[in-house]
């Protein structure tokens, strides 16, 4: 127990305390002075707008991932599908690659002279502007986070007791009823974890909005990055980080209340 406590103290507690400390100070000519100014600044409309946008985008991304990911997980988990090992492999391999590289590759696909538009030109169709807009950002987010939605749902569906399905059929449920009344409710823990594992990184991402959005959609992640790397206003950056952390902890708490038994197979 003690080694873990020490480790937690050193690597988790102390850094968080440091961030909170920074967030409560303001740099003046006489050094760091205690102040709530950073927090009051965070609540200005312009920054609230940024936070709202981050949450909204993350929400859209999570929704799309759920709608797209559930059927895929379902197909992969059904025993009749023979090539599922290969399909699983196809989903996992990109995850082993660097996040940045994967996002970069979309530039080549979506550019005005990129792959999609080149194909369209071959057929004499007009080119579309697919890059540097909100849609491109959501696309990039979905692409990067989809496996995190599919995997937990797949795991739960796979572990599901087949005999429960048969029992439902036995009692007169056709495929649709089995799906709605049995499969979906029982897969809820997986869905909850998937939603958590997508929403959390989605709300903090900054690379996707920089690269695919042309930096036109400032999100919380961009704001924090800016404060720490370019402006050197660590105090304000810390305040925004604290707000973000609170947001995430709140959402995780809500999610875990629903999934009491932790059957979701989540990574965190």
């Amino acid at each position: 127990m003690l080694p873990y406590l020490l480790w937690a103290l050193l690597f988790i507690i102390v850094p968080i305390l440091l961030i909170i400390y920074y967030s409560l100070c303001v740099e003046t000519d006489s050094g760091l002075v205690f102040s709530l100014q950073n927090y009051s600044r965070v609540f200005q409309p312009i920054y609230l707008r940024i936070m709202w946008r981050s949450v909204a985008l993350a929400f859209m991304c999570t929704l799309f991932c759920l709608v797209m990911g559930y059927p895929v997980a379902y197909i992969m988990a059904s025993k009749e599908y023979a090539r599922k090992g290969f399909l699983l492999f196809l989903f996992l391999v990109p995850m082993w690659m660097n996040f940045l590289l994967r996002t970069y590759s979309w530039l080549t696909i979506l550019e005005r002279n990129g792959i999609i538009n080149s194909v369209l030109s071959v057929f004499g169709l007009p080119n579309i502007d697919l890059l540097y807009n909100e849609e491109a950002v959501i696309l990039g987010m979905i692409y990067n986070f989809l496996p995190f939605m599919i995997l937990p749902i797949y795991t739960v569906l796979k572990k599901m007791d087949q005999s429960v399905i048969e029992a439902a059929q036995d009692l007169g449920a056709d495929s649709r009823t089995v799906f709605l009344r049995v499969t979906v409710p029982l897969s809820m823990p997986g869905v909850i974890s998937g939603v958590t594992m997508v929403f959390m990184p989605a709300v903090t991402t900054f690379i996707v909005s920089d690269l695919l959005g042309g930096a036109q959609f400032m999100l919380i992640g961009n704001l924090i990055e800016q404060q720490f790397l370019k402006i050197r206003d660590w105090n304000f950056g810390s305040a925004v980080s604290v707000i973000l952390m609170t947001l995430i902890i709140a959402s995780v708490a809500i999610f875990s209340m629903v999934d009491k038994d932790s059957e979701g197979g989540a990574l965190f």
């Binding site: 530039l107 005005r112 002279n113 920089d210 690269l211 042309g214 930096a215 036109q216």
Partner: peptide, 22 residues
């Protein structure tokens, strides 16, 4: 100017201009 700007880029501006993107 913002409505006229296609994107605010970093390093990727080089490859984009070479690729006749703007």
């Amino acid at each position: 100017q913002a409505p006229l700007v296609r994107a605010y880029l970093g390093d990727t501006v080089r490859d984009s201009m070479i690729g006749n993107e703007a």
